[in-house]
């Protein structure tokens, strides 16, 4: 489904990686590894189309993502370092907006269910600025539940999460893969999903 061929990426004068090729099909889980500064985030941002690759191409369902553009974006969710939450709005409003930007109209019932699933019962209508870092991350992750997209690209999804939330994420990823989803992620914490083989890609 997702195919990367001879990808190269530069930042300024610096070549991060080149000749990178891999593919990902339904139900697969891929962890991108590498030391700091080896280009993990740049790779994920290239997969999102933010960065135009210096060489090589990225294909989704056989077509270049540059040509697919909006069709590709309809089938992916990206969660970066930043949570994309507004301090002034509450968790529910934030979720409505982030789902809307991803192209999904969500009603209150679904949004509240997603927030409660992420362990935010009773926090739904609090402004995000009073939530802790871990709780903010949970609000951001709730987006995964309301967007019906097969490809998840997660950059350090586990930062600031406690043990319980990490377990929840493993469960979520497992369910998503079972539904023929695909996940590419980076993390510095161990993440194991029962019954799924974890593929690793190391940037050196």
């Amino acid at each position: 489904m997702l195919e990367i061929r001879n990808l190269a990426c530069t930042r300024g004068d610096h070549l991060l990686f080149s000749d990178l090729s891999f593919s990902l099909s339904a139900g697969e889980l891929l962890q991108v590894q590498g030391e700091n500064g080896k280009g993990k985030t740049s790779l994920l941002r290239t997969l999102c189309g933010f960065i135009v690759p210096a060489a090589g191409e990225i294909r989704w369902r056989g077509q270049n993502i540059g040509e697919l553009d909006e069709e590709y974006y309809a089938e992916m969710v990206y969660l970066g370092h930043l949570n994309a939450l507004k301090d002034e709005l509450n968790a529910l409003e934030n979720l409505h907006i982030s789902a809307g930007l991803a192209g999904w109209a969500v009603d209150d019932r679904q949004a509240i269910a997603a927030l409660r699933h992420m362990g935010l019962r009773g926090r739904e209508t609090l402004p995000v600025k009073v939530l802790s870092q871990g709780q903010r991350r949970r609000v951001a992750l709730a987006r995964l539940l309301v967007c019906n997209a097969p490809l998840w690209i997660l950059d350090e999804p586990l930062t600031a999460l406690d043990v319980g939330a990490v377990g929840l994420m493993q469960e979520l990823i497992g369910e998503h893969l079972a539904k023929d989803g695909m996940v590419i992620f980076t993390t510095h914490q161990p993440l194991e999903v029962a019954g799924v083989e974890l593929r690793r890609l190391t940037l050196a």
Partner: peptide, 12 residues
Amino acid sequence: DGTLEQMLLAPQ
């Protein structure tokens, strides 16, 4: 705050 990234990824 990262919202702009999400806007660029909007399927519209």
